[in-house]
Design a protein around this nucleic acid. Sequence first.
DNA 1: GGTTGAATTGAACGCCCGTTCAGATAATCT
DNA 2: AGATTATCTGAACGGGCGTTCAATTCAACC
Lengths: 214, 214
Amino acid sequence: MARTQGSHAGITGPRLREAALRLFARHGYAAVSMRQIAAEIGVQAGALYLYTPDKQALLFALMRDHLEDLLADWQPPEAAADAQLESFVRHHIRYHLDRPDLVFIAYMELRNLEPANFAVISRLRRDYEARLEAILSRGADAGLFDVADTRLATMALIAMLTGITTWYREGGRLDRATIEARYWDMARRAVAAPVPQPKSAPVAKVGHASGGDI
Amino acid sequence: MARTQGSHAGITGPRLREAALRLFARHGYAAVSMRQIAAEIGVQAGALYLYTPDKQALLFALMRDHLEDLLADWQPPEAAADAQLESFVRHHIRYHLDRPDLVFIAYMELRNLEPANFAVISRLRRDYEARLEAILSRGADAGLFDVADTRLATMALIAMLTGITTWYREGGRLDRATIEARYWDMARRAVAAPVPQPKSAPVAKVGHASGGDI
DNA sequence: GGTTGAATTGAACGCCCGTTCAGATAATCT
DNA sequence: AGATTATCTGAACGGGCGTTCAATTCAACC
């Protein structure tokens, strides 16, 4: 046999990436073979090499594209730092909950990257972290935030937010909007400056609505 | 050749576990071969099977022992919930910073566990999480904490705290005591109830107030 | 409708995998 | 010292790995 009916690069190419993404996320890069990926999309292993130079490039492309998309998809609004922080936090949660497999891979497969690829991915991650740190820094200067160390606060918030993907399941107890609201509430409080007391102080509030299901 | 000079189960056994831990943490379970582990401790691969029934048992034992030790090493003090939370947070940070490889494995290699082993490890993790959740629940009832959802707050705090191990390096910019203090500060503020104001009514607010820093 | 090029197969390459085991040697016991 | 037991080697097992490539078939174009 050789070329099969309906074969088309525009189809097999994307399917390869999808299959690799799903299998890498589920079993880990090292535990997934090219033959398994090929079987998933209904071709022989040799055919994969029309679409990727090797297995490593497959992983690297997934991670790099994910991070570049993440960076391209959000820009800080022109607003006070607290509004920027809210925008960042809500976007981070939404973006990550929409792409659980990519997030998983981007955090778990770092050690399977060859050094040159690792350097690229690390750089992109630092760029992303730098955005949050810039907001915290600006807000601290403005007296909106009370953070003893912006780098620490950055890492703490990102870890907290990204952690959602480790337990969130579609159709679970809480819907996304609720999760987003409650995490934003915790994130805000973790870094917010104490309100100036007695008078004025605009009283915003956060929905504590105990009510909920369970 | 056969038995070698100085060979002794009391030596090779522990060395096997140490080597497996280090290599699994560094390269991942699936990417490490029994032959690599054997080479690390200076024996042939066959000799490893005097100390473990198979590779999977090696991973499982590391994870199980780690979690059992974690659970055994801390009991909530008899105190108010806020003091219990501080004790938990500080212990969590210290314990995890002391065992970076074990922590890494326990979070990253879950998917490489066979189903029966996975069930055991999941159970232990849930037990640990339940301890924090109990504190938050108790503190919320006492009015010390303001958490909309104790489960969410539990997962948020654990993710935030455990995340330290992803960037902490011995001899880095901040020492452990500083990190511990600052993370405890952020964790506390994320869940603390607003201080009861001069007068009545606890005012929950969001700091938009431009006002001064602290 | 014939030609050209894209897409794929299937076999092969050399290598490494987890695990087993008979045989050999060192440590220990009597 | 001799017998016994613990420890390890080295080879082997069947199998899977990533990757390459000539041969083959299908799709697209003239």
